[in-house]
Computed example of a mutant assay.
Amino acid sequence: MSSLKDLARECGVSVATVSKALNGQSDISAATRDRVREAARRMGYVPNMAARAMKTNRTYNLGVLFVDERQSGLAHEYFSAVLDSFKVQVEKLGYDITFVNRNLGGRTMTYLEHCHYRGVDGAVIACVDFNDPQVVELVNSDVPVVTIDHVFNNRMAVLSDNVNGLSALVRYAYANGHRRIAFIHGERTAVTENRLAGFYKSCAELGLQVPEEYVRSGVYHDPDRCAEETRALLAMPQRPTCILFPDDFSAMGGCIALQEAGLSIPEDISVMGYDGIYLSRVMKPQLVTWQQNTRMLGRMAADKLVQMIEHPRVTLAEQIPVTGKLLEGGSVRSIE
């Protein structure tokens, strides 16, 4: 494997010049920088990360804390898309990632202990129980963290705009003549609280009366539970004309329950989802849903985490909203 000295000898420059060229420093000419980088590619030069870590006091490794209680793992299309965007961006910035967990080769450790064990420079936290004492311990530690869709006091957070997302869906149903709109939401999290706020706020502004029974407590990413709550809505004396499901994947369970009841979508009842995953585009009829901007969520989380690591004194903790967009489809009928 080629070394810095080999590159310096090949290019006829000093080791310091080679280092500056590879690190993009501006106090050498563009021609020298290009010549050094071309030689590095030709000679198969790979930086020694251990040496780089000793020099910079960084490992260039970021932790990812992702715990999906539904155990769908990276098959969870929404979070896998966010994390893929995060991974792509941090790699562009010169970092690797390590998944943080409680077990390592049969040894139990806390999330913070695992971060220290791997020497990560920072961590992104998504899809966890944010009330878990181990999560709180990590957030309050010396490890720079960015949370996705949850806010801790004086910590960096990247947030999908769930309030406006639910509001847009309600207003879309209203514009199509629906006045009896039900909402099956996920388990109680900060995301759910924001979606409920968006739902009730928009209903109030539109003058809609929402029966208590129309708002059902479900579980994210759980089609069976969604089907159960859908059947409860259908059993009401005056059932809703439109149902908002907690997410596109869970909506499948609700749609199956409607079909089993002999109802057609949207002729007999209208439905809407949330997330805008690929599944929503291939369902029949195509699902009206709110598409979260997974690419921007992941990229923004990566950028902010690296800023905290590389420029800690000038990077302020922020709550950064990321908006999405409404995707129309054939699952909502216009009522005269």
Rank of each mutant, 00 (worst) to 15 (best):
R299S: 14
Y95E: 08
Q71G: 07
V15I: 14
R295M: 12
Q259F: 02
L258A: 02
V15F: 00
H150L: 05
F66T: 04
D149K: 06
I148P: 08
Y60V: 06
C226Y: 00
D121R: 06
V100P: 10
F66Y: 15
W290M: 14
V271W: 00
R281Q: 15
A251P: 11
S85G: 08
N293Q: 06
V215K: 03
T56A: 09
V145Q: 05
R70E: 15
A53G: 15
R52L: 08
S280A: 14
Y78K: 11
A40W: 00
Y117N: 14
R171H: 07
T241A: 01
G330D: 05
E267Q: 13
K55H: 11
T147F: 00
A227N: 03
D161W: 07
V332A: 01
P240D: 04
Y111C: 08
V90M: 05
Q25P: 05
M300F: 03
P47G: 03
E91H: 13
Y220A: 06
E229I: 03
S250L: 01
Q291D: 05
S270H: 01
A235R: 12
L83T: 04
T323S: 15
R52E: 04
H311P: 11
N103K: 14
Q286M: 13
E113M: 08
V100F: 04
N164A: 08
T147C: 11
V219L: 13
L4D: 00
Y172C: 11
S160P: 12
V288G: 01
L206H: 05
G106H: 08
R281H: 10
W290I: 08
V18M: 03
T241P: 08
V67Q: 12
Y172A: 10
M156T: 12
G198I: 05
K201M: 13
G254Y: 00
S26N: 13
H185R: 12
D268L: 01
T241F: 00
I277L: 05
V64G: 01
P47T: 04
M1S: 11
R41Y: 01
P266F: 00
C11T: 09
V322R: 04
A175R: 15
Y274E: 02
D84V: 13
Q259P: 02
P246R: 05
S3A: 01
A75I: 11
V136N: 06
D34K: 12
